[in-house]
């Protein structure tokens, strides 16, 4: 009877450990997804955002990117290599067009292509209000490239996919 009791306790403990492992363990794919979520959080802007918040968010956004990243997003006239400084400036200047906006990533499909490289296909949704009062609501498909630098997945490229070609 005592033996049975010990076996049941051991099974419960093992199950608890397994559940905790699955809940707390982050795969490399999860870490890449987290970077996308952070990008959305840092780029988004609330109504009446203070300049100091904008600067902090620009710094946080910049830190998600590799030293030099390739951006190809024709809808925003972006095509070239961007340094950390370029990304911060871009983020600060683009905020002047909006009174508020939200950037959300959906349908995130991550593939670890090499030990230190990953790619993600995502749908990005940008919704908000321009300073002119007009609403904006855009949806794009993006291909994001990542490099693992010092243990952290950093964006090394973002390319817009032409889903609809005029």
């Amino acid at each position: 009877m005592v033996e049975n009791k010990n076996i049941i306790i051991a099974v419960i403990v093992l199950a608890a450990v397994a559940i905790l492992y699955f809940l707390l363990h982050k795969s490399e794919e999860d870490k890449v997804k987290l970077q996308l979520e952070l990008l959305g959080k840092h780029v988004s802007m609330e109504t009446g955002e203070k300049p100091v918040t904008a600067v902090t968010k620009a710094k946080n956004t910049r830190d998600l990117f590799a030293e030099i990243s390739r951006l190809e997003i024709p809808a925003y006239s972006l095509d070239g290599s961007f340094t950390h400084g370029d990304i911060s400036s871009l983020l600060i200047s683009s905020r002047s067009y909006f009174s508020r906006f939200t950037l959300e990533f959906k349908d995130i499909n991550v593939e670890i292509t090499e030990e230190d490289k990953a790619e993600a296909e995502v749908t990005v949704r940008l919704s908000g209000k321009l300073t002119s009062g007009e609403r904006t609501d855009e949806t794009h498909e993006l291909e994001c490239k990542f490099k693992k630098i010092e243990g952290e997945w950093l964006f090394s490229g973002i390319t817009a996919v032409a889903v609809l070609q005029k």
Binding site: D107, N109, T123, V163
Partner: peptide, 13 residues
């Protein structure tokens, strides 16, 4: 409905 990276967000056209 037109799929983008997946089916959570699609275009309606």
């Amino acid at each position: 409905t037109v799929r983008l990276a997946g089916e959570k967000v699609m275009l309606l056209k």
